[in-house]
Deep mutational scan, measured.
Amino acid sequence: MQVTWGNVTVTFSNPEEAKKYAEKVARKLGGQVELHNGQFRIK
């Protein structure tokens, strides 16, 4: 499962870890987490 924002992509084998990481990054950037085609995207 991947977490992407800007031109950065981070890949996780565990979807739960990916979700936690995406939420943490979104909080830092003041963005929203979207699940899109099996990727968490931060907008």
Rank of each mutant, 00 (worst) to 15 (best):
K19R: 15
V8G: 04
R27L: 12
T9K: 06
K28V: 13
L29M: 09
A18G: 02
V8R: 09
E34G: 04
K19N: 04
V3G: 01
A22V: 04
R27Q: 11
V3W: 02
N7S: 11
A26K: 02
E34P: 00
T11I: 11
K43Y: 13
K28G: 06
T11P: 04
K43A: 10
K24M: 14
G31A: 10
E23D: 10
Q2S: 14
E17P: 02
K19W: 13
Q39V: 14
K19G: 05
H36S: 10
T11R: 10
G31K: 05
N14D: 12
F12K: 02
V25T: 05
G6Q: 06
G38E: 04
V33T: 03
E17M: 13
G31P: 01
N37S: 05
G30C: 14
K28R: 14
E16M: 12
T9L: 07
K28Y: 14
G6Y: 09
Q32W: 15
F12N: 00
E17Y: 10
T9E: 04
K24C: 15
R27D: 07
T11D: 06
E34Q: 07
G30L: 05
V33G: 00
F12A: 01
Q2D: 08
A22F: 03
Q2R: 11
Q32G: 05
E34T: 08
Y21C: 13
T4I: 14
F12M: 03
V33S: 03
G30I: 03
F40A: 02
Q39C: 11
A18L: 02
R41C: 14
G30T: 03
E34S: 07
G38Y: 04
G31D: 02
A22M: 04
R27G: 07
A18V: 02
A18E: 00
K19E: 07
F40C: 04
E17S: 12
K19I: 08
A22Q: 00
Q2A: 11
F12D: 00
P15M: 14
V8M: 11
P15V: 13
P15A: 13
L29K: 03
E34N: 04
V10W: 13
Q32H: 13
R41W: 15
M1N: 08
K24H: 13
Y21G: 00
M1E: 03
F12T: 00
K24D: 12
T4M: 10
G38V: 02
E23Y: 14
E23G: 05
W5G: 01
N37M: 06
K19C: 13
E23W: 12
I42F: 03
L35F: 14
E16K: 09
W5M: 05
K28S: 09
Q2F: 07
K19V: 06
T9C: 15
T9G: 02
Q32M: 12
L29Q: 04
P15L: 12
V8Y: 13
H36A: 09
A26Y: 02
Q39M: 10
N14E: 07
G31M: 09
V10T: 05
K24F: 15
K43I: 15
W5Y: 09
Q32S: 14
E17V: 11
A22L: 04
P15T: 13
Q2E: 09
N14T: 13
V25D: 00
A22T: 02
E23A: 08
V3S: 00
S13C: 15
K24I: 12
P15G: 09
M1V: 14
Q39G: 14
L35E: 09
N37A: 06
F40G: 00
Q32C: 15
H36Q: 09
T11W: 15
T4D: 01
G30R: 08
L35R: 07
T4L: 10
E34V: 13
M1W: 15
F40N: 01
